[in-house]
Structures are given as C-alpha cells and as structure tokens.
Amino acid sequence: MRRLKTAAGLALTAVMLFPVYWMVNVSFTRDQDMRKSPPYWFPVHGTLDGYRAVLEQQGPYLATSLVVGLGTVALTLVIAAPAAYSLAKLRPRGGGVLSFVLLIAQMIPGIIMAMGFYAIFLTTGVLNTVPGLIVADSTLAVPFAVLILTTFMSGIPEELLQAARVDGAGVMRTFVSIVLPVSRNSVITVSLFAFLWAWSDFVFASTLDQGGAHQPITLGIYHYIGNNNQEWNAIMATAVVASIPATVLLIVAQRYVAAGVTAGAVKD
C-alpha cells in the first residue's frame, strides 16, 4: 500500500513537472527538429546551441538581474528589520495601524504601482536606471518582510532582551547584537524571497526599464520572444538559466521556502 502511494506520488509529480521537463528538452533541441511532428520526447539529437546563445547574448542581462536582486535584498532588510524589531518589541503607539497598512500595501496590484512609479521616475530622471528598478522591486518585498520578521521577533524571549538591558545595552545595541543574530532564520527567509521576487519581476522591468542600458533577464527572455524569434532552443535555454536561482533556493533552503509560502496564511 505504501509502495503504491510512492508510485502514485512519483506519477503525480511527473505530470506536474512535465512543463519543466519540456523546457529543458526544448532547450537541447536542434533548430531543424523544432517543428518536427510529433516532437522528440527526449533530446535525441541534443545540441548546446541554445546555451551557446545564452552565453553570447544574455550575460549582461543576468548580471543586471543579480545586481537588482542583491540591491533589493539589501534595501528590503535595511527598511524592514528595524521596523519589525520596533513592532515586535518596542510597543510603538499606532503600531497596529502600521501593520494594517502593510497588509493592505501587500495587496496592491504591481501594474498600478508601475504606472505611478512611471510618472514619478519620468519627471525625476530615474526611469530606465538600475537604482530605480531596485526601489520598485523592493515594494514587492518590504511589507511581506516587515510582517514576517515581526511575527518571528515577537517570539524572542523577553528575558533575553532584559538581560541585555541589565548589562547596559541600549535599544540599538540590543537590536544589532541580540535581535538580529537570533532572527537569522527569518532574515534568511525574507532575503531569499526578496531576491527571488526581484529576479523574477517582469511588470516593473517592462514598464520602468524598457529603454534602459542595463536590463534584467526577464526582459532578455521577453525580447527573445517578442522579436518573433523562432530559435526556441535559445529561448528555453535562457529560461532554464533564469530558473537557476529558484532551483538553488529550493535545494538549499527548502524549509525556509515552505515557511515563507505559508507565512501570513496560517495562524501560528
């Protein structure tokens, strides 16, 4: 019975992940086999042409995405961590209202933020720049980050902070040398998601960086498709490369990922 369940589980997973397999399969398919009917179900005449195209053409896009991702993580943490500490432990008057505002902020569709940002960026000259894109992408992560970190920091035992206070540590000192190190896991979770969201962002990239000198990988793929490009092996190879951060994240930080998905949805 249990073995049967494992078999069923494998079958279900195979069905679910078929599109991912197909992406990889197409990325290795030769141009002349691309429109073959029926298609090869395995890359029988496998080619690396697609990946060669990625190396030649997509390097700058990938580098930009890396910079944007890391910048978004940094900005998100700088804004969110102190706020979470305050909401969790310093009992600010009006903190409840602020949490409520953050919950609401999380629900605003990105396309609407994009339009407002476009108007602002155009007049301030930040349009089509990497810092502008970092700021816009951080709005995807900041409310989530504050809420997650607050939940976690609320669980830090009061005794720990009191001991620090007795030893003469001020609020700032307590935050830097006690709260932050103890919150390592939730800081990692937040950073992973901030990076992933910035890396995957298409809405802000396509509206605020369409004419930029440095464009992220999501636009790299989009240009590929948009140019009526028929080299689907190159498109899919780029897609495979663009999926690497998500894959790495799932392998090295699986429990953080699951925690991040359920956070906010499930009462803990």
């Binding site: 997973t13 679910m16 992940l17 599109p19 991912v20 197909w22 992406m23 992933l196 890396w199 995957s200 298409f202 999501t218 793929i221 989009y222 498709i225 498109i235 899919m236 897609a239 663009a242 999926s243 998500a246 894959t247 994240l249 799932l250 990922v257 699951a258 998905v261």
Partner: peptide, 16 residues
C-alpha cells in the same frame, strides 16, 4: 518538488 512551478519566474512558465 511540487513547489517548483510557484518559484519559477512567471516569464519562464509563461513562455514554456
């Protein structure tokens, strides 16, 4: 493994 579709960039899923 079931988390993969949720983690992939939307442009990757959509173009696939």
């Amino acid at each position: 493994l079931f988390l993969v579709p949720w983690l992939l960039p939307l442009i990757v899923s959509a173009s696939t």
